[in-house]
Design a protein around this nucleic acid. Structure first.
Length: 803
RNA sequence: GCUGAUGUGGUGGAACGGUAUACACGUUGGACUUAAAAUCCAAUGGCCUUAGGCCUUGUGGGUUCGAAUCCCACCAUCAGCACCA
């Protein structure tokens, strides 16, 4: 056979598959369904090696499952809204829509060269009205249920541009655009009440779906449920009280001060006359600090209000301070300082000369003065050792004191979460318009479903001016109130793009479905996802949001399942050949198009499957890929060795063992070892003079998911008419898995001294094996003059002698 | 600091508590070539001159007949979060 020329083979089959519709999905109720999905890509305009790594191994999975007889659904789309399009537009004067759509076109073409079985007929593009119409529809449902609401949050605010700035747009406290000093301001925004689902989103044991522990722990941590108590302290000589949240009331015996966040509403009310001026100055100063600055600057600052709160447990007079290390968003925006048991409190107390008391709880620990932070940390450990907390919400000692305090009326139990409601407002153009109408008479009125979508107008001024770009199109902005028919205005904000990607996999089922965001009948059949591939950067964002949407849809009885993906698999990163992240500035970027040109798609696919575990991060190796090419060439040339030949027992064993191994490994998402098994088999076949047709067929069948083109070519050369990818996965014949001889390791005192070959019929007979072992001169040497005290036999593996 | 993960040849990496280093790259030697490339064959963890033996999975302990694997402590790297009361 002539030389293996990948380009010829690959173009031909990609074309043929398209023409014959080999990868068209159709529902087949006679088969078990398998919804295989990769996170939808952002249309950046160029398909890079990361995309290949994200999509190729999942494609192997999809093809493998199809050959195993499953009804595999593997769609893809584009996450097409978002900032980069708008930035490109601002920079180069291209409209975001044109930029995005042309990128999608390029990338779709590039995707073709990857040779995946993705069925593009189910594609959804999130920036098209037929998609975002349903974002708006979902938003309306959320608005009705109070899940979408208008709330306030502290944000970076540029007073000149009158706009909210993201943290990365604040450069040393100044606005990136106009250089004005940025302040912290409470701004009205749209929120989704994800906290309403916080409890449901916490992963329980055993997990309700097969997601990596790192993801489950990460999400639980992020949700950060804490049971504590809100203690109300009276203030000496005043009717005012101050409320403080704590998860550790057991340390309250050592509480010596109170600290309020500068934004705390009572900050000034609590301040005594004499201190008003200095407190005001402090509040002004901290207002100017950005959140970032406050976090970066670890040096504690604060100011005394002049008031004292009474600790009901000890009657201690606790001075009330205002300090910017206290977060307004957590708890009550105030904390009770226990410097004897908390590092932060200790630093603060030490700096301002506040009293440091230590509590002795239980029998552990001894009283004494505290001199340094290390001592605090050591003692902290003694009171509630976190080991005790395993699987418990609260430590029993803490619970006891909470009960006591509630009984006495000092406070009330409260559950706090680290997770905040999700801010979804963006003062940007390239996103889904919020389907709300602001009417001076009726307030906020959702755009009626029948009037959806609220289309994004093409003509807007999206260069940054301060106000949301949509507000620049006055004609679009002006609207009649659906309720009173009076003059009203549209909401000019757009939705965070994570909204789009929280439910897109449902849209794929039927992207043209007209009666709702998705076809509920199809959802019943095809959802949840059987496997969801993606990046680890989405642990706390996208996948959590998608789970949240799932819970919401379930409440609305739109879906029946609890988790949208049965299995979650997170991939690693392909680094540049120098071991660094690929970047243009480093010049270490591997362009997949170039590599494909040099070696062909199949080689790149196989390389990406083989070179590392799917979840690993490792450098691209230009040398190793040529080894993969060599492997495919050897497969190609092995064709010529094919002839009518009787297979030996060994051949059959190797074949069946390999098929079994490859099957197992792909099922466990271990593509690299699956390929290694095929390579070993090829090594075995290469050593033979003749290869049977059956062997060769099975070889290319197990290779087909990895290298779809070359295997198709070879398959058809064998005279087959139907695509190799529609064939059944080879079956393992169990009777050939056993070899006649088994090698047993003989250990003396735990060290390997010899291996002996035994026929399988005496495998169960320990005394026979021992007899054989004692015949070995190597073993004898180590037994000389010693008495065997003990013999341990692990069947078919090891005979261990202790002397 | 917290949470999670990882640590095995020159490199990427294999190994249900049971022959550590599969598979591949690289390197070295050989065959074929006038020569090179390509291809094929062989060797390839370290140490001891060899038969043979000793050591080796980040470090130190432990459990076990037997540990890369399980337990404890430490060190290092990576990722996410971080003044969370």
């Amino acid at each position: 056979m002539k030389k293996y020329l990948p380009v010829e083979v690959e173009n031909k089959w990609q074309r043929t598959w398209r023409e014959q519709g080999v990868n068209k999905f159709s529902l087949d109720s006679s088969k078990e369904k398998f919804y295989n999905l990769v996170e939808l890509p952002y249309p950046s305009g160029d398909l890079h090696i990361g995309h290949w790594f994200a999509f190729v191994p999942p494609d192997v999975m999809a093809r493998f499952k199809r050959m195993q007889g499953l009804n595999v659904f593997f769609p893809n789309g584009f996450d097409a809204f978002g900032l980069p399009a708008e930035n490109a537009a601002i920079k180069r004067g291209i409209h975001p829509k044109d930029w995005t759509m042309s990128n999608i076109e390029t990338m779709t073409k590039q995707f073709q060269t990857m040779g995946t079985m993705i069925d593009w007929d189910h594609q959804a593009i999130t920036c098209l009205p037929e998609y975002y119409k349903w974002n708006q529809w979902i938003f309306n449902r959320m608005f009705e249920k109070g899940i979408a609401y208008r709330g306030k949050t502290l944000s970076n605010w540029c007073p000149k541009d009158k706009t909210v700035l993201a943290n990365e747009h604040v450069e040393s406290g100044k606005c990136w655009r106009c250089g004005t000093e940025v302040i912290q301001k409470e701004v009205e925004q749209w929120f989704l009440k994800i906290t309403a689902y916080a409890d449901q989103l916490i992963w329980k044991e055993p997990p309700q779906a097969d997601w990596p522990a790192s993801v489950r722990d990460g999400q639980n941590n992020w949700i950060g449920k804490k049971t504590g108590i809100n203690i109300t302290y009276n203030i000496e000589g005043s009717d005012e009280t101050v409320e403080v949240f704590t998860t550790r009331p057991d340390t309250n015996f050592g509480a010596t001060f109170i600290a309020l966040a500068p934004e705390h509403p009572k900050a000034l009310a609590i301040t005594t006359k004499d201190n008003k001026a200095s407190v005001k100055a402090y509040l002004e100063k901290s207002k100017k600090k950005t959140e970032l600055e406050r976090k970066e600057n670890k040096e504690k600052t604060g100011i005394f209000t002049g008031s004292y709160a009474i600790n009901p447990l000890t009657n201690f007079k606790m001075p009330i301070w205002i300090a910017d290390f206290v977060l307004i968003n957590f708890g009550t925006g105030a904390l009770v300082g226990v410097p004897g048991h908390d590092k932060t409190d200790f630093e603060f107390a030490q700096k301002f000369g506040l009293e440091i008391k230590r509590v002795v709880v239980g029998k552990d620990g001894d009283e004494g003065e505290i001199k340094d932070i290390k001592q605090v940390q050591e003692q902290e450990g003694k009171i509630v050792n976190s080991d005790f907390l395993n699987g418990l919400d609260i430590h029993p000692a803490t619970k006891k004191i909470m009960d006591y305090m509630e009984e006495k009326g000092y406070g009330k139990r409260e559950v706090e979460y680290h997770i905040h409601d999700w801010s979804i407002s963006r003062q940007r153009y390239w996103g889904t318009p919020v389907p709300i109408i602001h009417c001076p008479n009726c307030g906020m009125i959702p755009v009626p479903d029948k009037d959806l979508p609220v289309e994004l107008p093409y003509e807007v001024d999206f260069t940054p001016t301060g106000e949301p770009p949509l507000a620049s199109n006055k004609e679009w902005l002006k609207v009649k109130c659906p309720k009173c028919q009076g003059e009203a205005k549209r909401d000019a904000e757009t939705l965070d793009t994570f909204f789009d990607s929280s439910w897109y996999f449902l849209r794929y089922l039927d992207p043209h479905f007209d009666n709702g965001p998705f076809d509920p009948e199809l959802a019943k059949i095809l959802m949840p996802l059987d496997i969801y591939f993606g990046g680890s950067e989405h642990t706390l964002g996208h996948t959590l949001y998608a789970r949240f949407f799932t819970k919401f849809f379930k409440d609305l009885k739109m879906v029946e399942y609890d988790e949208f993906a049965k299995v979650r698999v997170q991939h690693g990163v392909v680094l540049g050949p120098d071991g660094n992240r690929m970047s243009k500035s480093r010049g270490n970027v591997i362009n997949p198009d170039d590599v494909v040109k040099e070696y062909g798609t199949d080689t790149v696919r196989l390389y990406l499957s083989f070179m590392m575990p799917y979840d690993a991060t490792a450098p691209w190796s230009p040398g190793a890929i040529s080894g993969i090419y060599r492997f495919l060439t050897r497969i190609w040339q092995l064709y010529d060795k094919m002839t009518k030949v009787e297979l030996s027992k060994e051949d059959l064993t190797v074949m069946n063992q390999t098929i079994k191994k490859v099957t197992q490994e792909i099922n466990e998402v271990k593509f690299n070892t699956a390929v290694a098994a095929i390579m070993s088999w090829l090594n075995h076949l290469s050593r033979k003079d003749k290869v049977s047709k059956n062997e060769y067929k099975n070889l290319i069948l197990v290779l087909a998911p990895f290298a779809p083109h070359i295997t198709e070519e070879l398959w058809q050369r064998l005279g087959e008419k139907e695509s190799i990818h529609l064939q059944s996965w080879p079956k393992v014949d169990e009777k050939y898995l056993q070899t006649e001889q088994v090698s047993i390791v003989i250990q003396v005192n735990g060290k390997v001294r010899d291996t002996i070959n035994l026929s399988i019929d005496i495998l169960n007979n320990q005394s026979d094996i021992l007899k054989k072992a004692l015949e070995s001169t190597k073993v004898q040497k180590f037994l000389q003059g010693k008495e065997i005290k003990k013999t341990i036999y692990a069947k078919g593996k090891v005979l261990s002698l202790v002397v």
